[in-house]
Simulated assay, not measured.
Amino acid sequence: MLKGKKRYVLILDDVWKEISLEEVGITEPTVMDGCKLVLTTHPMEVARSMGCEEIKVEPLSEMEAFDLFLSKVGSELLDIPTLQSTLKQTVKQCDGLPLAIVTLANTMKGERDVHIWENALNELKACIASVENVVEKSRKAMYKKGHANLKRLERNCLLERDDGNCVKMHDLMRAMALYITRQSHRYLVRFLMTLSLLS
């Protein structure tokens, strides 16, 4: 497709290692063809190894990062006292990178549940840790992740909340789940019965 274009700007975002443009099928841009290649990367060695001109983008300060985040996610979240610390820690994980901050804000916009924010913070930390080859697990983190997944299922009407602290699957959803599992032998379905004795 690019061979048919006389002039273009191609952006390769978040590149972590040197890649061969020829192997990917990209004609190397030159001054003569008027084409441009923009590469974003964290390791400067990648830009150097690919012969790119280095332009260092300075990250935002903590205050600038938090202001940008609030302008996108909504400053009303600051009205929740138990959430303020988690918000600041979450934004800090973005390391002052505007694109990461805006993406995070758009993903979490309108979310007011503290557990879901804490789970998002844990997932960000885990993502960064996995890049650095560090693995961290804890029972508390797993609880927060489970709570966040449970909330998503509720919001998508896949689970219903009872009067108390219990959730249940709608009969129609349960029937559909059983139908799907019958199509494959990879699933094991167990039926659990709870008996209540009335005095």
Rank of each mutant, 00 (worst) to 15 (best):
K72D: 08
C52K: 10
S71C: 09
L77C: 12
L60Q: 06
L68K: 06
S75W: 10
L68P: 11
S61A: 10
S71E: 15
K56I: 08
R48E: 08
S61Y: 00
L60F: 12
D79N: 15
E58L: 09
M50V: 02
M50D: 02
V57M: 12
A65L: 07
M63S: 14
P59E: 05
D79I: 05
D67Y: 01
E54Q: 13
V46L: 00
S71D: 14
S61L: 06
E58A: 12
K72M: 08
E76N: 15
G74Y: 04
V57T: 05
I80C: 04
S75A: 15
D67H: 14
A47T: 02
V46N: 08
S75G: 07
E76T: 13
G51D: 04
E62T: 14
G51L: 02
F66I: 01
L77F: 01
L68R: 09
P59I: 06
R48A: 06
E58V: 11
S75C: 11
M63N: 14
S75M: 10
E76A: 12
L68V: 02
V46G: 03
S71H: 13
P81N: 02
S61C: 06
S49Q: 11
F66Q: 12
V73G: 04
D79A: 13
L70V: 00
I80Y: 10
S75I: 12
L78Q: 13
D79E: 15
I55S: 11
V57I: 14
S49K: 15
F66W: 08
G51M: 01
P81K: 10
V57D: 03
D79C: 13
D79R: 15
E76V: 06
V46K: 10
S49T: 12
L60W: 05
E53F: 09
M63A: 12
A65T: 03
A47H: 05
P59F: 06
E76L: 05
F66S: 04
S49W: 07
A47N: 04
S61G: 14
E54S: 11
K56G: 07
L70H: 07
S71W: 04
F69Q: 06
S75Y: 12
K56V: 13
R48L: 08
K72A: 07
E58N: 14
P59A: 03
V57G: 06
L77S: 11
M50N: 04
G74N: 07
D67M: 10
S61K: 14
F69A: 03
A65H: 02
L77A: 01
L70M: 14
I55R: 15
C52F: 01
A47I: 01
G51V: 00
S61N: 09
E62W: 06
C52M: 09
V57H: 07
E62D: 15
I55M: 10
C52Q: 05
F66D: 05
K72P: 09
P59C: 04
I80Q: 08
K56P: 07
I80R: 11
L68N: 07
E64T: 02
